[in-house]
């Protein structure tokens, strides 16, 4: 199989994975919101409304394609695609299971790749905001650019602590390093400050409430995608949920051991028959299960926060990012460096 064909297949699978998850996530978010708000959520389309997102998607596809007359057409059209592209590309380096076959491409610079690719979404937001030629969209884009750039700094700084402990930029390496010391080896316990900063900054990066300033409904109607409808709007939604999925997966990989977990193969030491589960497709199945489970834990956390908290103001958001999260993450890096050299167990 030539590398080009392989890349195309990998890309398609990644895209399919994002789309299927986004379909589920929209339904899941509506159910979570309904549960928090004492409602039923979608109930009409299929049992428990499982097909609601599909119906909504079809509706969006059927809609008239509207491009405002005053819009900058190329920018307006490309923006949603760029947004989706960045959400899909992240998945190239995220491991679903053990070894080389558990990940699309185990880049040795995985973390840097993620930071680079997610920056694309800022570009998409700004393209859409500027291209729409709408004041609300422009405000949303301005906010988005300011917010995403400043929180990306804190985000990467918080990851740096993890990278220092793991001694590698590859996600697969970081996961295997964590499992060496059992569940206490999870960087969630060794890097608690980095973990908290990561969660806050990732929420801001995703522009989820309480940091959903660039699509703040009560001020900016719906921010940068005010002028979008139909398919293009659908693409923005897809990108939003794709990003949420990706950032949750990264959180699971960096802080909670990713695909590793107490699989049945771990019992092999006690019951020899279970050794079976360490071979063939089985480790991949359990790996995938634990990966998805941990990812969805983070997604649920994000939804829970969104439906509970009000929105912060733009200046408060910037203050939090630059005056609090960044200094704390820098201190965290310094502390990690010192601890890793002084305390042997910590660096193990």
């Amino acid at each position: 199989m030539s590398p080009i064909v392989a890349s195309i297949i990998k890309g398609t699978v990644a895209l399919l994975w994002v789309v299927l998850n986004a379909l589920f996530l929209v339904w899941f978010e509506r159910k979570v919101a309904a549960w928090i708000q004492n409602r039923m959520g979608p109930m009409r389309v299929g049992r428990w409304g499982w097909a609601q997102t599909i119906a909504d998607g079809i509706k969006c596809l059927m809609k008239e394609d509207i491009i405002p007359l005053a819009a900058d057409k190329p920018l307006f059209v490309i923006a949603p695609m760029v947004s989706v592209a960045s959400a899909v590309l992240i998945w190239i380096v995220i491991p679903f299971g053990p070894g080389k076959s558990g990940v699309f491409s185990d880049l040795p610079i995985g973390i840097i790749f993620i930071a680079a690719v997610t920056s694309l979404s800022v570009v998409a937001v700004f393209m859409s905001g500027w291209g729409s030629n709408n004041k609300y969209a422009l405000f949303g884009a301005m906010r988005g650019a300011a917010q995403m750039i400043s929180y990306e700094v804190a985000l990467v700084m918080s990851i740096l602590g993890v990278v220092m402990l793991a001694g590698s930029l590859s996600l697969q390496d970081i996961i295997t390093r964590q499992t060496e010391a059992g569940i206490l080896g999870w960087y969630l316990f060794r890097q608690p400050i980095a973990f908290i900063i990561y969660v806050i900054a990732a929420l801001a990066e995703l522009n989820r409430a309480p940091f959903d300033l660039m699509e703040a409904e009560s001020e900016l109607v719906s921010g940068y995608h005010t002028e979008y409808s139909g398919l293009r709007w659908l693409l923005f939604m897809l990108a939003e949920y794709g990003h949420m999925l990706a950032w949750s997966a990264i959180a699971a990989s960096l802080f909670m051991g990713g695909w590793t977990g107490p699989g049945l193969g771990a019992l092999a030491g006690r019951i020899p028959a279970f050794d079976l589960f360490n071979y063939g497709i089985w480790p991949y199945l359990t790996g995938f299960f634990w990966f998805a489970f941990k990812t969805y834990l983070f997604i649920f956390l994000a939804m829970w926060l969104r439906w509970t908290l009000p929105r912060v103001r733009i200046d408060q958001l910037m203050d939090l990012g630059w005056k609090f999260l960044l200094p704390v993450s820098l201190v965290n890096i310094a502390a990690t460096a010192v601890l890793a050299n002084v305390w042997g167990w910590y660096a193990k």
């Binding site: 928090i36 004492n38 409602r39 009560s218 908290l309 009000p310 929105r311």
Partner: peptide, 10 residues
């Protein structure tokens, strides 16, 4: 108005 949707429903 402050961005919290849940109290509205309550």
């Amino acid at each position: 108005d402050l961005g919290a949707a849940t109290p509205f429903i309550y």
